[in-house]
């Protein structure tokens, strides 16, 4: 589904050239659960931005679902982002003056979907993430966990193929971390390709496949077929622990 070949991303900082990505080869299949780890500055966030078409590689090829993405024009890239890719950010990036439901609705509005269909999708997405009661709340009225759940609902309301999560639990406490990871993994089990960038080994070890980045290159890439199953004590379907 995702095929990166010799991907490079160079920045110019002053006179120096920084190689954020320095020849990355990576293939990710449909329905995979990949964690990308590495020290800061290793290029893991840049990799995620390239995967999400927020950043254009300066070299190499990126094929997504069989299509060469690097040659698409701005319009087609925006459409691909809108329809095939969902983002979850560390800082949530919810629009403060919109309610939870309206935040979730935003990508559908951008896609030009009809109101009736939009409402049905939003209702379903909110229910999926246990936010039905919070639909009319504004982000400032929600704590970290529910905020990230709203962001996840927004990322998945378009039914994307890939969910890209950049430090999704970086701003959350332990309990919310378990909740949010459980939610993401449940979506993965439902067929979503999940890619999580994190510096937290506890989060990274949950993935089926762990990619380690160092200095803009893939340093290690190992599989863990047993991982990703619901661990004891974390049951995303269960009500919030008392």
């Amino acid at each position: 589904m995702i095929e990166l070949r010799g991907i490079e991303r160079h920045f110019h900082v002053g006179d120096q050239e920084v190689h954020a990505l320095d020849g990355v080869d990576l293939a990710i299949g449909a329905g995979d659960y990949v964690s990308v780890m590495g020290p800061s500055g290793s290029g893991k966030s840049t990799l995620l931005n390239v995967l999400g078409l927020l950043d254009r590689p300066t070299g190499g090829r990126y094929r997504l679902e069989g299509r060469d993405i690097t040659t698409l024009d701005e319009q087609d890239q925006a459409r691909t982002r809108r329809e095939r890719i969902g983002f979850v950010f560390q800082a949530f990036h919810l629009v403060q003056y919109l309610t939870a439901a309206e935040n979730v609705e935003l990508p559908l509005v951008l896609g030009g979907m009809a109101v009736v269909e939009r409402r049905a999708r939003v209702t379903a997405a909110l229910e999926e993430l246990g936010l039905t009661a919070r639909a009319a709340h504004r982000p400032e009225e929600l704590s970290g966990g529910p905020r990230q759940r709203v962001a996840i609902a927004r990322a998945t309301v378009t039914h994307p193929a890939i969910l890209l999560a950049d430090e999704p639990t970086g701003n959350l406490d332990r309990r919310s971390t378990a909740d949010v990871m459980g939610r993401l993994e449940r979506l993965w089990r439902a067929g979503l390709t999940l890619i999580v960038v994190t510096h937290d080994p506890e989060i990274g070890d949950r993935a089926r496949r762990r990619v380690r980045m160092v200095d803009g290159r893939v340093a290690s890439d190992e599989s863990n077929p047993a991982a990703g199953d619901p661990s004891p004590g974390i049951d995303p379907a269960a009500p919030f622990p008392a």
Binding site: L54, E74, Q75, A78, T80, R82, H93, L106
Partner: peptide
């Protein structure tokens, strides 16, 4: 700025 970045991430075109 952050809101604009978000809209791009959600698939808004430059024209939008």
């Amino acid at each position: 700025t952050a809101e604009i970045g978000l809209l791009v991430a959600l698939g808004a075109t430059r024209g939008r």
